[in-house]
Write a protein that binds this DNA or RNA. Sequence first.
DNA 1: AAGCGCGCCAACCGCAAGTTG
DNA 2: TCAACTTGCGGTTGGCGCGCT
Length: 249
Amino acid sequence: MGRSPCCEKAHTNKGAWTKEEDQKLISYIRAHGEGCWRSLPKAAGLFRCGKSCRLRWINYLRPDLKRGNFTEEEDELIIKLHGLLGNKWSLIAGRLPGRTDNEIKNYWNTHIKRKLISRGIDPQTHRPISSIGGATTAPQQQVMAATKAPPPMEATSCEENNNSSGGGGASRDGDDRSICLDLNLSISLPCQASEEATSAAASTTSSCSQAICLCCHLGLRGSDQACSCHQSTEDNSQQLRIFSDSICE
DNA sequence: AAGCGCGCCAACCGCAAGTTG
DNA sequence: TCAACTTGCGGTTGGCGCGCT
């Protein structure tokens, strides 16, 4: 299917955005709202591709972005979510208010991979490195191997916990696999793991019995037409708490 | 002080999914 | 039903800054 280029490359700027361009984009979106990215550059007087405008807005200019370092809680939550979802950065970002998929992806590649490797955990499969062979290989080799590995699709985010108590409901291996292969099914992970991961956000969470709809679970909460559950979507900390419930579930 | 290597991150690219006529 | 178009996503790249020699 012949696809037209998203923009006329001859008349578009590339590279870093200038303050003037940022200002134009911000003021245009303030006045007209997001959307119609293809026509936005022309309307806003920008010599940029629509995709580039969208990316700039989402990753850098959006007012609700949380700048600055990731907290330890965010780190752990990203690790857990990656264990569940794989490289679904947009879904992961949906559970981290104020963070973008690009930011999380970069952070994963630069920090968390290394962190997991130093813990002896394969960052792609979330399994102990020793169990996938080559336990004594150099960290860089592990990174390279991890980037080529297939998506995890296993609920091994609780690997550390499995090593000890095994936590709540889910049994090992076979059951874990089915859990993550089909996210339409109820998610069942040990409460202990998620409580550790989201201790700050979930500090008030004691019950793991609450059922969560798929919309909520995949970050679609707030989409009224898609989600029938009645929980508020306003409060970010509540979102984290609800999600921690869901992964407890 | 200069050169070099490395890490970080903003931005680009290509593809897939979704939408429209 | 299907082609054209738009939007969104994930992988990758390249430039910049910083630390080390």
